[in-house]
Write a protein that binds this DNA or RNA. Structure first.
Lengths: 217, 217
DNA sequence: GTCTATACTTGGATAGAC
DNA sequence: GTCTATCCAAGTATAGAC
């Protein structure tokens, strides 16, 4: 039925020529978003970085916006997968704060969140992009909510501060801290905050499990 | 010494022709940033909205980036002045949360923070813009810190959570919530958060002033 | 001093070559 | 199916008109 050589429909991976070109364009798009911001990310700047003709973007992705969404998907999937493994098994607040700090440091160094932040900001300019980006943030809200529920358990805190609301705040705070750290070129204030959160989490643990005081040395 | 008709050096206000044109361009720049985002904000799009020739931007401001910084200054000064009046005299946490929510609602409706967020995001693309934007956020950190110190006083909470660190978090959270509210076109989750914060603040007040329990009805 | 017409550069998208 | 050469719109900036 299919002609010999007809490309598989597989979008993510593959070894065919098309797949290789697509991968190169996606990688170049990620790097360009990180280094030049949304406004500096054009078909030409991406193609230049990839060493390819800019027309290929329109052949393989239809538009620059579509390529950027593919880039966001690529980064998002990779991160979500890794981080879910990292926080699985975390069942107390202070270790969750540790994990969160580790994630923040890693994201900042690798520039992962920059891609997301630039896309969010760019959504104001590119018609139709908003809902697409919004949908790609949804999994992160769910991830944060699950992690918080697992770490806090069913303590009374959950009733005054529902995990769902806190998860929204955490995602927002995370984006804001990244925004400011990147702008100032100084992650110091953000990292100081994680230290404070750690202290607070330990205090919380001491309060919620008063029947298990510190072991004697 | 000066020729008759030599324009005053006053940048902010004035009734001369130059001042009027500048004002129109600043206002159009604000509106364009809000409605079309950083990428959609070009000399042409601003001038079109103002009904002026785009060359005027370069005559009066030297570059598009300079006009955008003037727009940011205009919005920032107006907001800071108004909000400082609003929180002056607030000396307890729950009323500070009320004020913060009012500010958030107002900002969201008027699109004030959008201007700032777009400029932050755009700073990645435009060389030299980062430090300028960063400097214009500084007053807001100070504003938040003062408000928190005034509301929390010298309670023991201040030692585990210093006002300076909290202020940084508040600014970041504020930007993040604005980012998400705007993206989703739904301020619901953010507003729900203010309600939770209010509950928490009231709880805090009850704990820190246990000698003054609720009056009997 | 103020503004407009024009020059030149970069961007998105496609018709047509391989 | 894959890619390149080319088209036209939109961007910044300025030389010159008023």
């Amino acid at each position: 039925m299919a002609k010999a050589g007809a490309p598989s429909k597989a979008v993510a991976n593959g070894t065919g020529r098309s797949a290789v070109t697509r991968r190169q364009l996606v990688d170049a798009a990620i790097a360009t978003l990180q280094l030049e911001g949304y406004t500096g990310t054009s078909a030409r700047s991406i193609a230049r970085r990839a060493g390819l003709n800019q027309g290929l973007i329109f052949y393989h992705f239809g538009s620059v916006a579509n390529l950027l969404l593919a880039a966001l998907d690529s980064v998002s999937q990779e991160r979500l997968q890794r981080y879910e493994a990292e926080v699985s098994g975390v069942t107390n607040p202070s270790r969750l704060v540790d994990a969160a700090e580790e994630i923040f440091r890693n994201d900042l160094k690798a520039g992962y969140v920059t891609v997301l932040v630039e896309m969010i900001a760019g959504a104001s300019s590119t018609p139709g992009l908003g809902p697409e980006v919004s949908a790609r943030i949804q999994p992160w809200r769910g991830f944060a909510q699950s992690a918080i529920e697992a770490a806090v358990g069913d303590s009374p805190l959950g009733s005054v501060l529902p995990a769902k609301d806190v998860a929204h705040a955490v995602v927002a705070l995370y984006l804001g801290l990244e925004l400011l750290s990147h702008l100032d070129g100084d992650p110091g204030p953000a990292l100081a905050l994680f230290a404070r959160a750690k202290g607070l989490a330990e205090l919380l643990e001491a309060l919620t499990t008063p029947s298990t005081p510190k072991e004697a040395p």
